[in-house]
Design a protein around this nucleic acid. Sequence first.
DNA 1: CACGGATCCTGATGGC
DNA 2: TGCCATCAGGATCCGT
Length: 271
Amino acid sequence: MPELPEVEVTRLSFAEGISGATIVAARLGLPLRWPLGVDPQQLQGQTVRAVRRRGKYLLIDLSEGLLLMHLGMSGSVVFAAALADAGKHDHFDLETSLGTLRLNDPRRFGAVVFASGEADPVAIKLLGRLGVEPLGDDFDALDFYLSLQQRKAPIKQVLLAGDVVVGVGNIYASEALFLAGMRPTTRANRISRPRAVRLHAAIRQVLARAVEKGGSTLRDFSNAQGESGHFQLEAMVYAREGEPCRQCASVIKSIRQGQRSTFFCPQCQKP
DNA sequence: CACGGATCCTGATGGC
DNA sequence: TGCCATCAGGATCCGT
């Protein structure tokens, strides 16, 4: 479930609870994306200072280092005083004086990596190429436009690449492009300045609204239809191939871009 | 260097 | 307690 909003909501859910804790032990399950990313012994005895986020990475500041966690496609985190024995897909436990942080990740595309700090080459390798934070003050519309001018790939794939702006995953990319009235196949360098400004606003709006709603993802929402309270998160285009556009009733189309599904309204979204 | 394709892994789903 | 193909919210590596 993790795109930026879900990672941010995850962070908020345990950051306060774990801050100040002393690490008692760490346990590894099956290998994650980088199996040698962390040695449990180097964590023991350290203190958790704070939990931050960069893109879709969780950054856990320790007294002597930095723990980077990524949820991949299927990861989720729980933090509780007492947890049951680790299950089949629990691949990392961080037992602390204030509770245990557990990463569950069936597909194991996630990662847990230790670095001495943000200047550590390991951290730079993972974080160094990331683009600007979409919800931060540094996400500037003109800079965004200028960055897009440098790229000739389809805008959908530029958004997913994460080196211009981070955190926009496959669902929110389709949704943001719909909101901006822009065809996903449009080459980034063909986007005019006014349209880039509109897309910039759409990205912020889609992600900010999702964070406000507690990170309920669009897909989770559609599975939970019938439950009240999350109507605003209903997808406009994602996973709605063949259904009528909620804005103009045209049939929603689906295409493949870079082995990922993209959804759009051919009427509302212009090349 | 930017781009596009292949790849890691398990589980859910739908057609036969 | 069928089998097989396809697809899934991410990101890296590699050839061009």
